[in-house]
Design a protein around this nucleic acid. Sequence first.
DNA 1: GCGCATTGGTTGTCATGACAACCAATGTCG
DNA 2: CGACATTGGTTGTCATGACAACCAATGCGC
Lengths: 180, 180
Amino acid sequence: MTSTQPFSPAEATAWARLVAVSELLPTMLDAQLLRDVELTHFEYLVLSVLAASPEQTSRMTRLASQTNATLPRLSHVARRLEQKGLLERFPCPQDKRATNARLTAAGSAVLEKAAPGHVATVRSNVLDALAPDELAQLAAISASILARLDPEGRMSATQCHAGLSEAAASDAKTTPDAAA
Amino acid sequence: MTSTQPFSPAEATAWARLVAVSELLPTMLDAQLLRDVELTHFEYLVLSVLAASPEQTSRMTRLASQTNATLPRLSHVARRLEQKGLLERFPCPQDKRATNARLTAAGSAVLEKAAPGHVATVRSNVLDALAPDELAQLAAISASILARLDPEGRMSATQCHAGLSEAAASDAKTTPDAAA
DNA sequence: GCGCATTGGTTGTCATGACAACCAATGTCG
DNA sequence: CGACATTGGTTGTCATGACAACCAATGCGC
């Protein structure tokens, strides 16, 4: 059973640093993207995931999972992005309860414009700081923590970061979730 | 020089998981503390750092550094905590520009009440998921990333997490920062 | 084919974070 | 000692996240 005893020095150190990282990292990501393309990191993530989806389209619920977000949060953000013309929403033909979100041409353009700066920021602030074996350790450790934070795996953090890995931005010409 | 080429699969995986963790972790911490003691994780951190400070007192600027926060942010939070009676602010005698924040008895009480649940949450969601060597890896990796995110080391994340490690909550009877 | 629980989304309200503007006190240079 | 830059904090404004309430569509039981 989990104890409530104070942390050991090793635990306290690791925990304090992790807290600091998860405080500073989102701030830095938001700052860079807001400065360069007036987009939140979360908004950027939403667009990225869409870009890597079949037909650049995804249902709100699935999109929420893939971006580690709640549905209300995604709904608000989708409205803003829609007002900016970066994505469009339309009812899902197969399930009239559902809504599909699709990336627009303008959205693709913004994404292309934003990607280099974002990637550079991530590299210079995070990836470049790590040796190859540390990269693997980070992936493993994060996976273990995620298994606790999200036992059901609702948040598909296990998957690749859409639009950012080499494989993305290519084909993918199957139907969206018509079969769902 | 940092490249803007897309991430390799290994990079994309590690990055996606880190993003997911830094999205989900703060949410979980806030949820638990708000539910149990009506405190934000950041508020809890502020009180914890104060508890471990000499005379349970610290200057606003230093407190901001120790909690990875900007001064305006701390200022707002300090006001709220003061209204709740958990801390008090008073002008620093040595430097009339400066303000000292001091933990009140009520603040100590809340902290004591909150600590077990918070520690248990951190253990069950994070620390328990890691093997001893992973704990050390996490500390090292986080330190490397922090060195990039905060080159000047303004945020004292290197230090122990006040009030949570065994050493804290004890003596510390030197004067605050009178000598500063 | 009529209730009722469930799923899928949206909206409203409130609290919080970022950023800029501002004020007060200090130090410094001539 | 008088202008100016710097340090230390606070306040105002605006955008964003959490949570609860709500509505629409579906499916299930009988």
